[in-house]
């Protein structure tokens, strides 16, 4: 298992898997199978994959702790960058392909007026510093402690992303509710393990060795 997790092939495989949603979308495009409203379909598709990758990224730390496999962390940056990548596509489609957002004032008006866009933009902007500082050089420059603190911004992205989804659906909240449950679980795990760590160690054994983030 450890060998599998440490293998460069596994990392390459995860990289390719991350591209599968995009490949499928392009395939649908060539098949002219983007529904009667291609802009809407592609916007929803990339939005779905953004929040999925955010959730997958947030799984890494709990998985590492529960399975006690520190190697899992190797995939965290790539998965986070995929969330950012699909988020960029999602935003770019809205800005570039939808002609209603063809001017800066029109974009600004939408951000200011529609709360689901405001909070969606917030979710995206919170990812921006994380993507920029995702390199090893930035971890060194910031020191690991500060870098780690900065990267807690991903919690904001996750929460704002769920709210964005929740506010944009008309009435059927089943899917946003599902993501809300997943994000609550993933963030709740961190809160619980953080609280347990703060408690004086009496029982000793159950305490996680690495702090949650």
């Amino acid at each position: 298992m450890n060998r599998f997790l440490s293998s460069p092939w596994t990392k390459a495989g995860v990289f390719l898997l991350g591209l599968v949603p995009l490949a499928v979308l392009v395939w649908f495009g060539f098949q002219m199978d983007l529904t009667a409203n291609p802009i809407e379909y592609v916007t929803h598709y990339t939005g779905d994959w953004t929040i999925r990758f955010i959730c997958i990224t947030l799984c890494i730390t709990p998985l590492r702790m529960l399975l006690n496999r520190p190697q899992i962390t190797r995939f965290r940056r790539m998965l986070g960058l995929y969330a950012f990548f699909y988020g960029c596509l999602h935003l770019a489609i809205w800005v570039v392909l939808d002609p209603r957002q063809n001017t800066i004032p029109a974009i600004w008006e939408d951000i200011a007026k529609r709360r689901y866009i405001t909070v969606g933009m917030l979710a995206f902007l919170a990812m921006l510093p994380l993507a920029i500082t995702s390199t090893a050089g930035w971890v060194r420059r910031l020191t690991f402690k500060r870098w780690k603190r900065l990267h807690r911004l991903v919690y904001l992205t996750a929460i704002a992303g769920v709210i964005h989804y929740w506010w944009l659906v008309k009435s059927d909240i089943r899917k946003p509710l599902m993501y809300a449950a997943i994000v609550t679980l993933l963030l709740g795990y961190r809160v619980v393990s953080w609280m347990r760590k703060r408690k004086p160690v009496a029982e000793g054994t159950s305490q996680p060795t690495v702090s949650a983030r």
Partner: peptide
Amino acid sequence: REHPRWSQKEEQRLGEGGLFNAKF
């Protein structure tokens, strides 16, 4: 009359134009 979710000033005419040239 603005709707909180959608601007009602324009509409997308479905079935005309595709992903890169949607008709509004």
